[in-house]
């Protein structure tokens, strides 16, 4: 078998593994890690009806991973009766964020303008974070639906980060860093994050230093969080496909190394 054939075989194998496991539609109850437990406890411990900013800092490409994470966080926050203020620091997070908040709010009978509001997208994320520290209404004179923010009931007592208990950044990249560097360091707002698995190690130093209060990551994090909430969801349903793909990759690494050592032995 030449290298081109072996590559095509590896591609076909991955396609079959993911397709079959997705079709099986089996949910996996993931063992809860300390990291996810810490995030759950942190959000669970916030006083009732706290004002919380949920920032949709991700793009459409990572939606299969970010949507289950966003859903569990929103479900938890709505279940605890918090006041949610949705914003998006990336343009693509705008439509996704509004749709997610709207759908989840319906599940918990929450009313727009009284229990939650979506302010939409503001370009230049650093400027937006700094500007909200001075005035949220000044940064977003209108919400996503075109309502004047000064007339929205929920925002009548929320002027800047002093009136916000926490920011939860849903990020697939480094945007949470800006929330930490500008939101937390300059204005003292508490920041936590739900991030793509590939970004977990990036934020470890911030967790260790306490600048990031808590973090949950990846599809596995979403499945663990669903487990803690006691609800089913797409995190647990997708875990079998992800775990099987991981095992398949491990198998490929082993085959690649066995072939390498055999060829080296032959000289």
């Amino acid at each position: 078998m030449n290298s081109r054939q072996s590559r095509h075989l590896a591609f076909a194998g991955l396609f079959i593994v993911v397709t079959v496991t997705m079709l099986l539609n089996i949910s996996i109850v993931a063992t809860v890690s300390n990291e996810t437990k810490q995030m759950f406890d942190y959000l669970d411990g916030l006083p009732e009806r706290s004002n919380i900013i949920v920032s949709f800092d991700h793009e459409a490409s990572s939606l299969p991973e970010m949507k289950p994470l966003g859903l569990v966080i929103l479900r938890h926050l709505f279940a605890k009766d918090h006041n949610l203020i949705g914003v998006a620091l990336l343009a693509e997070g705008t439509g996704v964020g509004y749709r997610l908040m709207q759908e989840t709010a319906k599940e918990y009978n929450k009313e727009y303008g009284r229990d939650y509001v979506f302010l939409g997208f503001k370009p230049q994320f650093i400027a937006a974070i700094l500007s909200m520290g001075e005035s949220i209404g000044g940064t977003f004179p209108e919400d996503y639906l075109g309502n004047t923010t000064s007339e929205i009931e929920l925002l009548s007592d929320i002027h800047n980060y002093d009136d916000v208990a926490a920011v939860v950044s849903l990020a697939d990249g480094s945007l949470t860093t800006h929330w930490i560097e500008y939101g937390n360091e300059k204005y003292g707002v508490q920041v936590s994050a739900a991030v793509a698995a590939s970004m977990l190690t990036t934020y470890d130093p911030y967790i260790s230093s306490g600048q990031l209060k808590a973090m949950v990551g990846g599809l596995r994090g979403a499945a663990e969080y669903e487990n803690l909430l006691g609800i089913g969801g797409s995190g647990a349903r997708s875990m079998l496909a992800q775990s099987s793909a991981h095992l398949y990759i491990i198998l490929l690494i082993i085959i690649g190394n066995v072939t390498y050592f055999r060829s080296r032995k032959k000289g």
Binding site: R7, A10, L14
Partner: peptide, 27 residues
């Protein structure tokens, strides 16, 4: 847009599969 971007992003998994077989060796 969402399916197109997710598809392009998902292609990375195939590159990872190829790299696992051909490049990740205990040299």
């Amino acid at each position: 847009q969402v399916p197109l971007q997710a598809t392009v992003f998902a292609l990375l998994a195939f590159f990872v599969a190829s790299a696992s077989l051909r490049g990740f060796k205990a040299r």
